[in-house]
Write a protein that binds this DNA or RNA. Structure first.
Lengths: 297, 297
DNA sequence: CCTAAGCGGTGCGTTTTTTGCACCGGTTTT
DNA sequence: AAAACCGGTGCAAAAAACGCACCGCTTAGG
């Protein structure tokens, strides 16, 4: 698209940090690129770059422009997908940023079912923590976010929300394994593994521990992989914690998952969201509806 | 803006209906314009015009593109206003499509107060019926609509709504002038004026008349100007109908406005709205908040 | 029936715009 | 003090856009 060239060059300069580097990246002369940037600023009416001795950096006006560029580009992609949709192609691409818990069982199942009905649709699924997911939405790098307890930001539009109680996962031979629910103080007195403070599970546990018991969350092993932690419970008597949606007990017959007592630990909120005010591409919008339906049952 | 040239040419062709006419309008040769259009379609990947023997018309893909062009243009205007805002200029433009009733008193007062605090902001105020107002929003020709009982369309996002009872307006010496409220059947037995079916007042009156009385709305004078109708009531004993927000009884001391009985006539809904999913320019967004606040009191 | 008018599209020479090259003045690094 | 980058500029070459004349086609109107 010829008319988006200026935007591409601007983004190139942003990425490279200087005109000369960007020019090299994009196989063009520095002088030509320089003139394009200057001409754009001229027509735009405002400077968008600070000229530093070591290169170029966006000024606030440039930040706003960058956001416009990204929004415009994503809108254009949506337009194209709509157009190709009406010529009967039924293609499209969906990009999702999600929490770890969704990766092993939930999303594969939903996506597989969706693709069975819409074989032309492709997917990008990225594991992102709640802060990164929100940033990706606002940069139009992802269409959909499905994360636990994101920091509530203005640009995050919550489409659907669902509470998930934290479960304690352990070997079936563990002393606590027989109970219906487990009190937090009991769980914490046994050796346990936990994720770092970056993850909602840990934050909820810490908050609950401060409120209800004198025990502390004191993990034997700290990891950023829930997959690792749950599987570790298969090898040593060790309690790990995870949301039910991330668990598929049928595949790990030696383990049991028992919810923590409601009065101790608040459930985690799984939030399905998108960039506020954005109109999603057809494929993404349809998949989002599918997601909601699946979550509801 | 150089990079919007293609869009301008495309819109020119849409307006003119043929390349040759558009070329004349835009002071360019038909051949050059033709090549631009063809090149754009080439790069876009889809034809956007039907080639008819008598000229060019948009095909469905073109309709989608046109919507994108308008949205993109309005988004760019918002970007500029944001940028100029952060260089401290506090300028902007607000365009409003509204019902007649808002024109004489309500909007002048609100806009004047707003401009007193924000002298750099300019306004466009257009009188549009409820169908036209919604079309203007979806074409990004207006930022804000303030209309009675618009046909509910998907693209109309209701921001605030307020019920207004229809009032009967008459000379203070009219036989019905003393009452607290007026029954519809009483009003209709006296000579009255009414707007055409295009207007919400008439539709509400007709609906109510069919439901509650055997009398019919049978106006001596039918007009599309509420201003004319109310003022006509000053010269002959004649009942006219209007929403309270369009009335300023202090300026017409000979007239009285008396609400019609609630059990007879449903109140009209005054709706404040914008294009669904659109992020308004700063000035328009602020003015919209101001409007809501004023309506609330 | 034919003609004239209007339509979109195309080949070609000309004009305008963009690019590449060489080079300037400035700041930072070594 | 020299070397390495940086953004910016004058000028000629290359590329893109344009205007003109003309084609084939359909329709409106006598």
């Amino acid at each position: 698209m010829r008319y988006l060239k200026d935007f591409e060059f601007i983004e190139g300069v942003i990425r490279a940090g200087s005109i000369r580097k960007a020019a090299e990246d994009m196989h063009i002369t520095a002088s030509a690129l320089n003139r394009r940037i200057n001409r754009f600023e001229d027509e735009f009416g405002y400077e968008i770059f600070e000229r530093l001795p070591r290169g170029m950096r966006l000024n606030p006006a440039g930040e706003l422009l960058l956001h416009h560029i990204r929004s415009q580009r994503s809108d254009f992609a949506r337009l194209k997908s709509q157009v190709s949709d009406l010529s009967g192609v039924r293609r499209g691409h969906v990009s999702i940023a999600c929490s770890q818990a969704l990766l092993p069982f939930f999303l594969p199942q939903v996506i597989a079912r969706y693709r069975h009905n819409h074989p032309g649709v492709t997917f990008t699924v990225n594991n992102r923590d709640r802060v990164a997911a929100e940033r990706e939405l606002s940069e139009f790098a992802s269409d959909i976010a499905l994360v636990f307890e994101p920091r509530t930001m203005v640009d995050f539009e919550i489409v659907y929300t669902m509470a998930q109680p934290i479960c304690a996962v352990m070997l079936a031979s563990h002393p606590l394994a027989g109970r219906e629910t487990i009190r937090l103080r009991d769980a914490l007195r046994y050796p346990h593994v936990a994720p770092s403070e970056k993850y909602a599970v840990r934050v909820l546990l810490e908050t609950a521990a401060r409120r209800t018991t004198s025990d502390k969350v004191n993990p034997v092993i700290e990891s950023d992989s829930f997959d690792f932690m749950c599987h570790y419970s298969e090898w040593e008597h060790m309690i790990s914690f995870q949301f039910p949606i991330g668990l598929n007990m049928a595949r790990t017959p030696d383990l049991v998952a028992i919810p923590l007592a409601k009065q101790d630990v608040a459930p985690g909120n799984l939030l399905l969201g998108q960039q506020r005010g954005r109109t999603l591409p057809v494929a993404s919008a349809r998949f989002m509806r599918e997601l909601m339906a699946t979550l509801q049952e």
